[in-house]
């Protein structure tokens, strides 16, 4: 069972003394779905960049199955917040790019790209230009492209951030099915507590200054959805709502204590 593990990593950008991430450890196994939530600036993207190999940790190590990660690689596919598609390639050629880079022949890679497009609900849209798609369709192309490389780990940075609530719900169900089909280990950065809860086998809450894990919990709502339970019933279960409140409390914990401190200082001053 492959595992992507960050152990005791810290990250400083440039020469700045304040670390963006401090002493953070995280294991992502194949077949797991880990979500990372936290307020803006808490270091979520930085964490994903470390896992992807776009940046190196200042201290600590990033390993895949014990081998140190020295840069990005095809075992870890990334879905970017801005879809990062190539407008000069048609939709199916975007999805086929990872296969082209891996040396797969033209006919085979296009056939496989069309399969993945069908899997994300974009059957027959492959010959279109990227700019002829809607925002949600483009995100699905980005996900199809990442899956086409058949990665061991799928790293996603707020891939649904730009979508409306209805499309998001549909995308959640799609993501779970794709995750199950690909057997990849998924890491999802998100702002949405409900999204994290519904999708993940494990949720991490990151607090800022410096970025660190303040809460980690395991959940099974996604697995139960895949086993056939109704998503809306799952999301209105008392267990779901209680978990949501716990996570929200963890996210706003620092804020609350800081505000209390400021209030206290006002009283003193």
């Amino acid at each position: 069972m492959s595992v992507l593990s960050l152990s005791r990593v810290s990250l400083h950008y440039g020469t700045s003394s304040a670390p963006v991430l401090q002493d953070l450890s995280l294991d992502l196994r194949r077949g797991e779905f880990v979500s990372v939530i936290g307020r803006s600036g808490s270091g979520k993207t930085s964490l994903l960049n470390l896992a992807a190999g776009f940046v190196s940790p200042s201290t600590g190590t990033v390993r895949v199955d014990g081998r140190a990660v020295t840069g990005p690689g095809p075992d870890r596919a990334v879905v970017f917040q801005d879809d990062a598609l190539y407008p000069w390639r048609r939709v199916e050629d975007n999805v086929a790019l990872p296969l082209k880079l891996a040396g797969v022949g033209r006919d085979e890679r296009l056939a496989r790209a069309r399969d993945w497009l069908a899997a994300v609900g974009l059957e027959g849209q492959g010959a279109k230009h990227v700019w002829q798609l809607s925002g949600g369709q483009r995100q699905r192309v980005g996900i199809a492209r990442a899956l086409a490389s058949e990665p061991e780990f799928l790293l996603m940075d707020e891939p649904l951030g730009a979508l409306d609530a209805m499309t998001r719900d549909l995308m959640h169900e799609l993501l779970l099915k794709l995750w199950q089909r690909s057997h990849a280990g998924a890491m999802l950065i998100t702002h949405s507590v409900e999204e994290a809860l519904f999708l993940s086998t494990s949720v991490l809450v990151l607090a800022p200054d410096p970025g660190r894990v303040v809460l980690q919990e395991r959940f099974s709502f996604g697995r139960r959805f895949l086993a056939g339970e109704d998503p809306r019933a799952l999301k209105s279960e008392p267990a779901f709502i209680a978990a949501r409140e716990r996570l929200l409390a963890a996210i706003y914990m620092k804020e609350a204590s800081r505000m209390k401190k400021q209030g206290h200082m006002k009283e003193v001053g």
Partner: peptide, 19 residues
């Protein structure tokens, strides 16, 4: 992100320039 995407898919330097 367009550059990083290609790198994550295993593009070599030459492939990155060409693609």
């Amino acid at each position: 992100s367009q550059i990083r995407a290609a790198q994550a898919f295993g593009a070599t330097r030459v492939q990155l320039v060409r693609e």
